[in-house]
Amino acid sequence: MFFTIAAAAFGLFAPASALLRFPCSSLTVQRLDPLVNPGMNPSAHLHQIVGGNSFNETMPSESHDLPSLSTCTSCQFSEDFSNYWTAVLFYKAKNGTFKRVPQRAQGGGFGGGAQNQGGMMVYYMTDALFDTAQRSTVTAFKPGFRMLVGDSTYRDREQARKWRQLTYICMENEGTRAPEYIGFPPKPCPAGIMANHRFPTCWDGKNLDSPNHQDHVAYPESGTFESGGPCPASHPVKLPQILLETVWDTTAFNDPADFADGNQPFVWSSGDPTGYSSHADYLFGWKDDSLQRAMDGHTYVSAPMLQSQGVAQQNQCKVPDVVREDIDSWLTELPGANPVV
């Protein structure tokens, strides 16, 4: 899948300078993965998904126009029909049973108002998160664009070095943002575990996807996105930084005995007890040029040029559970019978 964008590689597109931060409620939690396991029902492991309600097990990029096929989105900006998803966190008890860890709402609930149902916080930015100037220029994603960050098979630090910015925060309170761990935090976290997924920000300028959903994008050649590192010559087009923040409410599972002798009791739905397999998927689906307009808007968090919807509308947007398996009881095995290794 290709997109002719030679002009973008030479900076001929309109400059973009903005930061968007917005909550998305849960769209569905089930074993579907149209990027890695297209057409498979069920897929290999459980995911939590947000975004447009055209999400299903088969979403070919050549013909799937998310804005026209979706009738609602679980995200705040009603022009964003993209889909974002990650694996699901489970607690493993000493008797070998598993319990799905709930997600704490991101956004909503301020002043006693409506509360988002689970989901995640999504960021699109042109510079470091807290740089209010947002001076850099980026090129917004194009229709059909998709990518994957991380690898569900990784189990050690050396493997995970490829992904510079997939991290965890052991939250002492709602405002905790440091330090960041590469694997699961080795201690109880009083306010939960935040999983951070930062996607690569350099594009080859041609391919909307690649066989492994990764080779068409890259991290900066040196440094990081936040430090203003340059894109490599092979991937010269600078994209917005997408950051997903998911807060897993581990407060019911903070028995210090579970963390004795360097252990910790959490596993990803892929069967990973280390945290090094952290991964996330993205299917672009912003309507028309709405994302480019927002990136061109020179705004910080607020986006008056975009259409917003209330929390109640976000919570109402769902897709059917087509897998129909129990994911909420105490389970004797992970969904999909994934071994913990």
Score class of each variant (00 low, 15 high):
residue 96 G to Q: 08
residue 267 V to E: 08
residue 221 E to C: 00
residue 149 V to F: 01
residue 299 T to H: 12
residue 269 S to H: 05
residue 74 S to C: 05
residue 199 F to Q: 05
residue 27 L to Y: 07
residue 341 V to P: 00
residue 340 V to H: 06
residue 334 L to S: 07
residue 302 S to I: 15
residue 170 C to K: 11
residue 190 P to G: 03
residue 180 E to Q: 15
residue 146 R to W: 07
residue 136 S to R: 15
residue 205 G to V: 10
residue 205 G to F: 10
residue 155 R to E: 01
residue 229 G to D: 07
residue 219 Y to D: 06
residue 125 M to R: 15
residue 23 P to N: 03
residue 308 S to Y: 02
residue 273 P to M: 07
residue 120 M to D: 02
residue 34 P to L: 04
residue 169 I to E: 10
residue 124 Y to V: 05
residue 316 Q to W: 01
residue 47 H to L: 10
residue 268 W to G: 09
residue 330 W to D: 14
residue 31 R to P: 00
residue 188 P to M: 02
residue 5 I to K: 12
residue 288 D to Q: 14
residue 272 D to L: 08
residue 339 P to H: 01
residue 266 F to M: 06
residue 18 A to C: 09
residue 286 W to H: 02
residue 108 G to E: 04
residue 307 Q to K: 15
residue 164 R to K: 15
residue 61 S to I: 15
residue 147 M to P: 06
residue 324 R to Q: 15
residue 220 P to D: 04
residue 297 G to F: 06
residue 196 N to L: 15
residue 191 A to H: 13
residue 54 S to N: 10
residue 240 P to W: 03
residue 256 P to W: 06
residue 268 W to Y: 13
residue 244 L to V: 12
residue 118 G to L: 10
residue 218 A to T: 12
residue 175 G to Q: 11
residue 199 F to C: 02
residue 140 A to T: 11
residue 168 Y to N: 03
residue 36 V to H: 09
residue 61 S to L: 12
residue 198 R to D: 00
residue 233 A to K: 15
residue 265 P to A: 04
residue 31 R to W: 05
residue 299 T to M: 09
residue 83 N to H: 07
residue 147 M to I: 12
residue 214 Q to Y: 01
residue 68 S to L: 14
residue 259 F to N: 08
residue 5 I to D: 07
residue 103 Q to M: 14
residue 164 R to D: 00
residue 299 T to Q: 13
residue 173 N to W: 03
residue 163 W to E: 10
residue 10 F to W: 09
residue 336 G to R: 09
residue 65 D to H: 13
residue 84 Y to D: 00
residue 123 Y to G: 01
residue 60 P to R: 11
residue 41 N to E: 14
residue 236 P to E: 03
residue 303 A to H: 08
residue 247 V to A: 00
residue 157 R to Q: 11
residue 221 E to A: 14
residue 19 L to W: 09
residue 95 N to L: 09
residue 226 E to S: 14
residue 335 P to I: 11
residue 27 L to T: 08
residue 14 A to M: 12
residue 267 V to R: 07
residue 206 K to D: 04
residue 157 R to P: 02
residue 154 Y to H: 08
residue 207 N to Q: 13
residue 281 D to G: 06
residue 284 F to K: 04
residue 336 G to V: 10
residue 265 P to Y: 06
residue 264 Q to G: 02
residue 333 E to Q: 15
residue 252 A to M: 11
residue 202 C to D: 05
residue 229 G to Y: 06
residue 289 D to Y: 07
residue 78 S to W: 07
residue 288 D to G: 06
residue 212 N to F: 08
residue 130 F to W: 12
residue 200 P to N: 10
residue 171 M to V: 04
residue 264 Q to I: 12
residue 173 N to E: 13
residue 157 R to S: 13
residue 333 E to W: 08
residue 194 M to G: 02
residue 316 Q to V: 01
residue 93 A to L: 01
residue 202 C to N: 05
residue 20 L to D: 02
residue 332 T to C: 01
residue 105 A to S: 09
residue 256 P to G: 05
residue 143 P to D: 01
residue 73 T to P: 03
residue 258 D to E: 14
residue 69 L to R: 15
residue 150 G to S: 06
residue 280 A to T: 12
residue 187 K to R: 15
residue 278 S to E: 14
residue 131 D to R: 11
residue 24 C to I: 13
residue 45 H to Q: 06
residue 286 W to I: 10
residue 24 C to M: 10
residue 8 A to K: 08
residue 16 A to K: 11
residue 305 M to S: 12
residue 92 K to M: 08
